[in-house]
Amino acid sequence: MTKNKNNILSTENLAIGYAQKKQQKVIASGINFAIKKGTLNAVIGKNGIGKSTLLRTLSKVQKPLEGTLFINKKNSNAYQHLELAKTISLVLTERVPESQLTVFELIALGRQPYTNWIDSLSKKDLQKIQWAITATNLETLQNNRCSELSDGQMQRVLIARALSQDTEIIVLDEPTAHLDMHQTITIFELLKQLTKTTKKTIIISTHEINLATKMCDELIVLSENKIYTGTTAALIQQNAFENLFASKIVKFDRALQQFVIHSQTF
């Protein structure tokens, strides 16, 4: 699978976690999967299972404890800061510190890997920024200050910033956290559409499991004992969803093909 020509990102025996001075805290190990170019992928699993750690490792924010990560068939360790910045862009869960940046200015920061030492925008930079603004439907907001935006608008601005960075891969850590149902679906549809129109590869982590199983091309399911990858249909066959929460309250319903609530208190 890792040898496939279409794979943009693949891992070999990857172990993720945190290394402190002497001891290592391994969160997951023996991770082998590949992500195809131009697809929407979701990492799902319960809280604390290591979704964010996996995404942080895939985007080289933190080092893997073991194993190798290949980006475009090249060992990720061989990437320089700048080369990586032109390959992977990020949307993180952390809040952007408060400042007086406007929407346009924040999105323009995505062009930094391409701008000169004093950060002036070329014609091409401006085109890319404008395209990112149009793609995320932010035309009317572009001169507003970021501090005045709602959570959903801010998420779109951060996605636009990642788009203006013009990378093949975009990694988003829980892009729909804090958003209402309508905004959540809007973001999912936007991401899905972007993979189709731009051939960009998008990897997200999410708790919107039912939405992810319907809208994503492939899923990476993190559970206690095993990591499953594949399309929703393939994962159902492998019983990948059965033990996701190891709980009676939320169960995967095979007939409905989605997770349903079995609460005693209703």
């Binding site: 985007s59 924010v61 700048l82 990586l84 910045a85 992977i88 862009s89 993180l92 890997p113």
Partner: peptide, 9 residues
């Protein structure tokens, strides 16, 4: 923030 700055190279 530092993580975004890092991701911008």
């Amino acid at each position: 923030g530092e993580n975004y700055a890092k991701s911008l190279g």
